[in-house]
Write a protein that binds this DNA or RNA. Structure first.
Length: 358
DNA sequence: TCTGGGGTCCTAGGACCC
DNA sequence: TCTGGGGTCCTAGGACCC
């Protein structure tokens, strides 16, 4: 989806049309903490972009329209769009709120038919949601994803098998999935800037430097990707975290905040009917130094008390140093669904019974 | 310039088991 | 005194995604 959050806000507020819209943290007159989630193309003209500190965006364009994210609205819109997309795919994989992979191998006979399908999908989303999207068509997920990013907004880019190498070669290595800022920097230092450079580079040297990922980068650079389009399985962890308005050494406040975050985590886990075994807290000091500290229980639990007690105890180590705290968070992992747990105890029960019979 | 919040996956070291 | 090889699980940190 093109500038998803901002586009949804524009749809709901026609008076925003034609003006720079920035969705993200509250700028609080330049004192706000947090970043820009999404902004529309009018705002981008002023140099605003996702991930930029909101305070900086505000200083740059104070008269833009600033909107606090309305996730309920975006989730509801996303659900409808994903439902539509799913109908057209043999295999489907949602990727965040506003992207998805569709394996359409048996739905279309060739790339020309894939273009027809993409046009149909774009039309349907525009009619149903009054929103535009950009689609990439390729022989695998890697190429399709990069292609989808090639022309925006409202784009449609096709990369046929014979064109893959030529299409990828001039692009920055940063375009590759799993090559972020750090990896881009390391690759640049090795003299690798474009995907073409990477494809031509000696694999063994890449493996030496990046381990298994080195092999992966080289395959990606050559447009090779055999990964399946497949739905995400069960969630693996649930967490909540928050950044204080100003850094604090008020440890009562820190502990109270942890307790509230634990409550939210517990609510989410309960709604999902899951149990957890591991609790991890996160502390970020004023200088952005970040630590995590966790513990694993002997058995699964869903008790709020267990979660809050563990969070409190884990935090103690960080509250002694007389340091300013910027952020705290709580996360639970080693999850199992209550259903799964019942099955397990049933298995134990039946094992006991069979032993009895013997 | 001053850096959110939701996640996933990988790595490396250490404890522990047989 | 010096010490294998297979494995699992846990912990902490970091890179990456949207």
């Amino acid at each position: 989806m093109d500038q998803f959050f901002a586009a949804v806000e524009e749809r709901e507020h026609p008076e925003f049309k034609g003006k720079p819209v920035v969705v993200g943290a509250d700028p609080k007159g330049g004192k706000g903490r947090g970043v820009v989630s999404t902004c529309n193309y009018e705002a981008r003209k002023f140099g605003i972009h996702s991930g930029m500190p909101i305070s900086r965006a505000w200083r740059r364009v104070p008269n833009a329209i600033y909107v606090i994210p309305n996730f309920k609205l975006y989730v509801a819109t996303s659900l409808r769009i994903m439902k539509t997309l799913r109908r057209y795919a043999d295999k489907f994989e949602q990727w965040g709120l506003d992207e998805a992979f569709l394996d359409v191998t048996t739905k279309v006979g060739n790339f020309d038919e894939a273009i027809k399908l993409a046009e149909k999908i774009k039309r349907e989303i525009r009619e149903r949601e009054k929103l535009t999207c950009s689609i990439g068509i390729g022989p695998n997920k890697l190429v399709a994803k990069i292609a989808s990013d090639f022309k925006k907004p409202d784009g449609l880019t096709v990369v046929r098998v014979k064109d893959v190498e030529e299409f990828l070669a001039p692009l920055s290595v940063r375009k590759l999935l799993w090559v972020g800022k750090k990896t881009e920097h390391k690759l640049n230092e090795m003299g690798i800037r474009t995907i073409g450079d990477l494809a031509a580079f000696d694999v063994s040297e890449l493996v030496e430097k990046f381990g298994v990922m080195g092999k992966q980068y080289h395959l990606s650079a050559r447009g090779i990707d055999e990964s399946e389009v497949s739905e995400r399985g069960e969630i693996k962890s649930v967490g909540r975290e928050t950044t204080f308005e100003t850094n604090t050494d008020d440890y009562d406040l820190v502990l109270k905040t942890l307790e509230e975050l634990a409550l939210k985590v517990h609510k989410e886990v309960s709604e999902r009917e899951m149990l957890f075994k591991t609790v991890t807290i996160k502390i970020r000091y004023g200088n952005f130094e970040t630590h995590t500290h966790g513990k694993t229980f002997a058995s699964f639990t869903n008790r709020l008390q267990d979660l809050q007690k563990a969070a409190r105890e884990l935090a103690q180590a960080y509250l002694r140093e007389n340091r300013m705290i910027r952020l705290v968070g709580v996360r639970v992992s080693s999850l199992t669904s209550r259903k799964g747990q019942r099955t397990l105890s049933n298995a134990h029960a039946s094992m006991g019974a069979s032993l009895h019979a013997h």
